[in-house]
Amino acid sequence: MQIAENAALVVVDVQKGFEELDHWGPRNHPGADDNIAGLIEVWQETGRPVVFVRHDSVEPGSPLRPGHGGNDFKEYVERRRGKGGAGAELLVTKSVNSAFHGTPDLDAWLRAAGISQVVLAGIQTNMCVETTARMGGNLGYEVVVAFDATYTFDLEGPFGWRLTAQEVARASAVSLHGGGFARVVTTREVVAAAGA
């Protein structure tokens, strides 16, 4: 695997509201936050562009709604914003799952910068990370998902089916990788390929 010199790291919805586990339930990947922080640092140290995505939920009771403390980025992300040196930085806000349906237009920004490869990290694996990966693949980007730099929560579906967070994440990874939408790898593989 190669990580392009101008590959964009897209950090999806790493917000305080996801710490409200009474709302979300059990999660997986306890080391994900450290991996996300590490990826941001690698991108900033190597002068690559970083996109910070924030979900501004329109649901009244959502922990991610604007005006609620949970809408803010987690502290470790906020501390790293604006520290990119030579690397470009963008803030995208959205109210749907895909970062490609936010403001400003992520696709237009990437194309204007000549960026064709995006690396995704963040929350939730099977929701906004997966939707962004699928749409990025559909738009023709080479998408890489740093699987252990993402996490999600237990989920109930139809017929009383319930999956653990790890089962949900694995299903998401299999769909993305097996379906050709993205290459799903570990944070260590991304860091090694980025030359850090």
Rank of each mutant, 00 (worst) to 15 (best):
G137W: 14
N138I: 02
V145T: 03
A108L: 13
S62E: 05
Y151K: 07
A146C: 01
Y76V: 00
E89G: 04
N138Y: 08
R111M: 05
N126S: 15
R65Q: 09
M135F: 09
V96P: 00
G82A: 10
L64K: 03
T125N: 09
A149Q: 05
A99T: 02
S95K: 12
N126M: 11
M127P: 03
A113Y: 09
V145D: 04
W109E: 11
G69F: 05
N138L: 03
A149V: 06
R81M: 15
R81S: 06
Y141V: 04
P60T: 07
K94T: 07
A121C: 15
L64N: 09
D107I: 05
G102D: 11
N71K: 01
S57M: 00
D148V: 10
I123V: 15
L155Q: 13
G140A: 06
V145Y: 05
G157N: 06
S98H: 09
K74R: 15
Y151D: 01
D154C: 04
R80A: 14
Q124R: 04
A88K: 14
R65P: 00
I115G: 04
N71R: 13
V96N: 01
A99E: 10
K74T: 09
F100N: 08
S98M: 08
V143P: 06
L90H: 03
G102N: 07
D107A: 13
L106Y: 07
T103N: 13
V129N: 02
L163R: 12
R134F: 06
A86E: 15
A112G: 11
V96E: 10
G140T: 07
N97E: 12
T131I: 04
A108E: 14
R162W: 07
S116K: 14
R111I: 09
Q124L: 03
V129C: 05
S62W: 05
